[in-house]
Design a protein around this nucleic acid. Structure first.
Length: 138
DNA sequence: GCCAACGTTGGC
DNA sequence: GCCAACGTTGGC
């Protein structure tokens, strides 16, 4: 199983909305590297749900429940989306400031490529971030 | 095919 | 609100 991190501006689509909706199509990605990451997602993969801009913190965990398929919100280009399902909130949201202070997370894609909205997360980083956030799920 | 100009994203 | 990073566009 692979791990990911997906970003959303809470003004546009928040964790609360994700929880309320349950399963949500993750549309609107218009960046080739992010698209490549979306296309690499497999059923059952987990992803951190990150609030950019205002809050800048990992606030929840989602699971990929449908692999990449055409993003119908795209007017042109072959963009894709996946469906994600809320698993649960991060007990203690892990802020970007926390992440940046941790040397073990220095090469996290989130830090190195701040503009990439869909990032891979290694298994070690995933465990580390779960520990920081008090996530006790699997 | 190069590069300057410009737009967008996201952190601060 | 500003700025850095980076992607895209268009002139040459």
């Amino acid at each position: 199983m692979a791990y990911w991190l997906i970003k959303s501006e809470p003004d546009a689509f928040s964790w609360d909305e994700q929880v309320a909706n349950g399963v949500e199509p993750w549309t609107g990605v218009r960046n080739h590297q992010a698209k490549k990451n979306l296309a690499g997602m497999k059923l059952g993969d987990r992803a951190f749900f990150y609030h950019s801009n205002i809050q800048r913190a990992i606030v929840g965990v989602v699971e990929i429940v449908r692999e990449a398929y055409p993003d119908l919100t795209a007017e042109s280009g072959n963009w894709v989306c996946v469906d994600v399902k809320a698993i649960g909130p991060m007990p203690n949201p892990v802020t970007l400031a926390d992440i940046k202070q941790d040397a073990a997370l220095a090469d996290l894609a989130l830090v190195r490529q701040s503009r990439l909205s869909v990032c891979p997360v290694s298994a070690e980083h995933w465990r580390h971030l779960c520990q920081m956030g008090g996530w006790t799920g699997d």
